[in-house]
Design a protein around this nucleic acid. Structure first.
Lengths: 215, 215
DNA sequence: GTCTATAGCCTGATAGAC
DNA sequence: GTCTATCAGGCTATAGAC
C-alpha cells in the first residue's frame, strides 16, 4: 500500500497503550476493506456493514477500532495526497529535463496501475468537490506544483524543452495517467480483449517525447 | 442542455395525456436540479429532498412527476452517453485528418466547458463501475470507437498522421478534455488566479499538433 | 475484544385532505 | 397538482452481556 501510515491514532478507548498485534492486524484489515468499498461506492454509498463484513468483523467490532465511518475515511485520505505527490516531488532539478519528465510520467502511470483503488478514492473525492481535502489542495499541492512548474519553465527558457504551459503540462500528466485507473471500466468496455495498461506506457511516452523534445 | 430529450416517459398517473406546460416546466426544473445534485454528490449522496427544494417543489410533489429517485437518475443518464459521443460521431472521414482530430478535440473541450455537470455525472457513474450504463459502453460506445479507430488507422497508413495507437489517442482526448470539468476543484486550487479554461485550448491544440503532425 | 440487541436518525415513498 | 403527515426500511452508532 502506498499510503503513508501515520502513527496509529489511538482511539480513546485504548488509552495510549501500544497497539497489540491483533489490533494492528484488524486495523489494517479494516482499512483495506474500507479502501475497497469507499473507492467503489463513494463515501455515502459505502456502509459500515459492507466494510466490516469484508474485513471479517462485526459492525460493532469495527467501531471498536474506529470511532466512526468518517474516521475511517479520513484515515485513508490523510496519507493519500502525500503519497500521490511523491512521484512529482522526486522530479530532479539536476537531471536531464526530458528524461526527468518522462520518468515522472512513468512513475505516475505505474502508480495508477498498482494502486487503482487509491486513485478512485481520490477521484471520488475530487469530483464531488473535495470537501475533505480542499485545504490541502490549496496549500501543499499548490506549493509543490508552483515549485515544479517554475523548474519546468526554467528548463524551457534554457531551450532544453519545447515551450509548453507548465501547469497544463502537469495537469495533462495527472489526467492521462489517472484516467487508466479511474475510467478503467470504460476503457475495458471498448478494448475488451487486452489489458489497457499494456500499450498505455508506450503511447504516453511517445506523446510526451513529441510534445517536449526541443526543436 | 445537451441532453437529447427522449419523448417524456409518461408516468402511469398521467395516463398518456400530452403533458401540459406546467408539467413540462416542472419536469425540466426537476431534471435541472437533479443534475446539480447528482453531479455534485453522486447517486447515493443525493437526497430527494435536496432535489425537490432546489427545484422549488415539495418532496411528494416531485414524486408526482417521477416515480422514484432512480427514475430521475436514469432519465438524466439516458440521453447523456449519446450526446457525449456526438463530437466523435461528427469526425468526418472525408476531411483533412489532422484538422478533423483537432476539431474533435475542440468540440469535446468546449463541451466540458459548457456542460461540466453532465461531465461529472458521467464521471461519477464510471468511477463507481458504471453499474447503470455498462451495457451501453460495450455496445454503442465500443462500436463507434472501433469505427473511428479504424478511420484513424487508415489515415496513419496513408501517411497523413504520425503513427500512434488509435484507441489510446481517443482515450487521451477524453481524458484531457473531461479532466478540466471533473477535476475542476483541484485545478482551481492550484491555479487560483485565472480560469483554467483560458489556456487549456491552446495547450491541448499544441499537444495534438506535435503528436500527430506527419513527419 | 467481540458479540447480540437496539436506539435513534435519515430518507425514500405513500396516504389522503384540499 | 400540491400539500401535510406519516410509514417503513436502512443506516450509524451505542448499550451491555460475555
Amino acid at each position: 500500500m502506498p499510503s503513508k501510515s501515520q502513527p496509529a491514532q489511538t482511539s480513546a478507548r485504548t488509552k495510549n497503550r501500544a497497539p497489540t498485534r491483533i489490533q494492528q492486524k484488524n486495523r489494517a484489515a479494516i482499512l483495506g476493506a474500507a479502501l475497497d468499498v469507499f473507492s467503489a461506492q463513494g463515501f455515502r454509498g459505502a456502509t459500515i456493514d459492507q466494510i466490516a463484513t469484508s474485513a471479517g468483523l462485526s459492525k460493532p467490532n469495527l467501531l471498536y477500532y474506529f470511532p466512526s465511518k468518517e474516521a475511517i475515511h479520513n484515515t485513508l485520505l490523510a496519507g493519500l495526497l502525500d503519497t500521490w505527490l511523491d512521484p512529482l516531488r522526486a522530479m530532479n532539478p539536476a537531471g536531464d529535463p526530458l528524461q526527468e519528465i518522462l520518468a515522472y510520467v512513468h512513475r505516475k502511470l505505474q502508480m495508477s496501475r498498482d494502486y487503482p483503488r487509491e486513485s478512485r478514492l481520490f477521484a471520488n473525492e475530487i469530483v464531488q468537490g473535495a470537501p475533505r481535502i480542499h485545504d490541502a489542495l490549496s496549500t501543499d499541492l499548490k506549493e509543490l506544483v508552483d515549485e515544479k512548474a517554475a523548474l519546468i519553465s526554467s528548463w524551457i527558457a534554457d531551450g532544453k524543452l519545447a515551450p509548453v504551459h507548465p501547469y497544463h503540462l502537469i495537469f495533462s500528466i495527472w489526467s492521462l495517467t489517472q484516467h487508466y485507473a479511474d475510467f478503467d471500466v470504460q476503457i475495458r468496455a471498448v478494448m475488451n480483449t487486452q489489458d489497457p495498461f499494456d500499450d498505455a506506457p508506450e503511447f504516453i511516452d511517445t506523446l510526451y517525447r513529441r510534445l517536449l523534445s526541443p526543436p
